[in-house]
Nucleic acid binder design. Sequence first.
DNA 1: TGTGGCATGTAATACGTTACATGATTGG
DNA 2: CCAATCATGTAACGTATTACATGCCACA
Lengths: 187, 187
Amino acid sequence: MSLRIALLGLLTASGPSSGYDLAKKFETSVAHVWQAGHSQIYPELAKMSADGLVAVEAEGARGRKIYRVTPDGDAELRRWLLAHDPSTTVRSETALQSFLVPLLEPGEALTVMRRLKDRGEAHLSELEALRVRKDAVMDPAHRWGMFGAYALDLGLRQARCFVEWADDSIADIERRAGAGQGAPDPT
Amino acid sequence: MSLRIALLGLLTASGPSSGYDLAKKFETSVAHVWQAGHSQIYPELAKMSADGLVAVEAEGARGRKIYRVTPDGDAELRRWLLAHDPSTTVRSETALQSFLVPLLEPGEALTVMRRLKDRGEAHLSELEALRVRKDAVMDPAHRWGMFGAYALDLGLRQARCFVEWADDSIADIERRAGAGQGAPDPT
DNA sequence: TGTGGCATGTAATACGTTACATGATTGG
DNA sequence: CCAATCATGTAACGTATTACATGCCACA
């Protein structure tokens, strides 16, 4: 379901596009929110076309098909945004590692936590680069100037907050390890 | 893969348990990090047993099977924690809604954002309740006293940060809507 | 003319969700 | 003895990942 919605959203914001274009936009804009590769996108567009949510507007060179959103598609998108209660299921390998890290010895735990912090910092830089690019490209005259902007802001805040957490956790593990070595269990 | 790891982690921390026990623990402890129902857990335990990562220690009343982690399982868990670079794929309906929300009229956008904020606050309360319960139960004498604690801390921070973001975004949408009405497009 | 990037798709496999199905045991 | 909950599983379906496969077109 959500893949459809993401595609309808991109098509609405960018105007008529081919599957290839949409796959690109997935990589460069929605990626921090939802992921999908071309092998998922092409069949989904075909199904959406069968369901009347999108339509082939034109067929360009090398079999390129240009899709546009139909009124039904627009209604579906709005309905989902307004009425669908987003599922709360989370599945994050990063969070799972952080969950399990106390099973390791302090030294090993530090290795893992530092790697998590590095990944977090890398992720933060990516989002910051994205923001800069977006600021440069963003057209306030365009009807959907804020498209993706709130989500990007959320991503940036969470990424900063992740790095802070990693720092504090590393400090905590170091403190406990030090206490454990210096004075054995001062309970 | 990650499901195996989560199961190995829970088995390590809680000692020998049945599939049923593990399913419960999934709900009450790992849930904010990884989700799985019993229909996924039972077959996975069977496969893990075939692969030698866990072993049936005893068979109790009503066909209850008690699994424990084997040395191979322990090695697998450690290897994953130390060497596996966590995948960065995200798939969050909440974030997708926040991404697409600028496609709506300001009024509709506010409805959606306020719902997102409500969900965020609810999630925050759940995690806070979990922390209280955990603080009450946590046994510092136990070998893995911090099991799950770093992840919970991360969850709490991100949840707070989410609510802040929702507040700021709501304010931003209100501001833009007000500006749009009061003085039509002051560019 | 051939290499690289554009552009589209399918197939096999893995992972997840929902629904179905069954039987044992405990407590009222 | 009946209901609730313990406890285990399977089947059908939907979604996601990886790999395979093909052809067009521009440019060197």
